[in-house]
């Protein structure tokens, strides 16, 4: 959890806005440090967290969280964290040697055309806390790292957007929880593709998610190229009307990721410059 980011977003584990759909996106850069931030943030906030990790193994997330001062193993044991390890699950489907382990979540791998309904059912049942632990944990939170991986697994952009829509309708609106999704994009921002290019799926996914989200964190590399002291810039964009009446509000920060955290600063105010 990065306290500097909390102050930028004006939240803290004790008080955060509920019902938010946060989109984390990166373009020729890596925004996974923000996913680790949100994971540790919501675990500290005593939320019931469902983590759909499609990119890395459980031990990777666990090791990073350990550095940020949160134990995933403990949270899992207490029933606070539901972790879907996409890599493992997909392997058991693609290479079905053992008896069926029972999880239907990754069923879309068998036939990508059916859509992500099974994955949604997994999220919904995971967050509905059937075992009476409702009072124990706060609002439900869904984290997805990352949604664009699904495109490489054969899922269409439309199906991925349907999945995010259902997650938003259930988690944000119905249960007043939060959703954080990461989406990656490799292309240049100013590429004029007009939606004609069918190959640019990640671009369309990102646009669709941007229309759905209430808060967008866009991570980019520095336009001027590599720098040792500044790892990139984050644009924070509130798309919903804020309490003070403003709607689309944007702020741009530069960041540097450290071993145990990250620092955010206004453009041009890096310690290496001043």
């Amino acid at each position: 959890m990065f306290t500097e980011l909390n102050s930028i977003l004006n939240t803290s584990p004790d008080s955060f806005t509920q019902g938010e759909f946060i989109l984390v996106s990166d373009r020729q850069s890596d925004a996974s440090f923000l996913i680790h931030h949100f994971l540790s943030f919501y675990l500290r906030a005593r939320c019931k967290v469902c983590f759909v990790g499609l990119v890395q193994s459980y031990s990777h997330y666990s090791a990073v969280s350990q550095r940020l001062g949160v134990s995933l193993a403990q949270a899992k044991e207490k029933g606070q964290l539901i972790f879907l390890e996409g890599l493992k699950e997909s392997l058991s489907i693609l290479n079905p040697q053992e008896a069926d382990t029972g999880s239907q979540a990754m069923d879309f791998l068998r036939d990508p055309a059916v859509g992500l309904r099974s994955l949604y059912e997994f999220v919904r049942s995971g967050l509905s806390s059937s075992d009476g632990g409702e009072d124990e944990w706060g609002p439900p939170v869904l984290l997805v790292d990352d949604l664009s991986v699904l495109l490489s697994l054969g899922v269409s952009v439309g199906a991925a957007l349907d999945f995010s829509h259902y997650c938003r309708a259930t988690v944000c609106s119905q249960k007043q929880g939060n959703v954080v999704m990461l989406a990656r994009c490799d292309g240049e921002e100013d590429e004029e593709d007009d939606g004609d290019d069918e190959g640019e799926g990640s671009e369309r996914l990102l646009k669709g998610l941007s229309h759905q989200c209430s808060l967008a964190l866009q991570v980019r590399g520095l336009p001027t190229g590599y720098c040792r002291d500044i790892h990139g810039q984050v644009e924070v964009c509130w798309r919903r009307r804020q309490a003070d009446g403003q709607h689309t509000q944007k702020k741009l920060f530069q960041y540097k990721v450290h071993d145990k955290g990250a620092s955010f600063f206004a453009r041009g105010t890096s310690s290496a410059v001043l």
């Binding site: 007009d194 646009k207 669709g208």
Partner: peptide
């Protein structure tokens, strides 16, 4: 209509 979501 989100114009940027569709083909022209």
């Amino acid at each position: 209509l989100h114009a940027d979501m569709h083909q022209r």
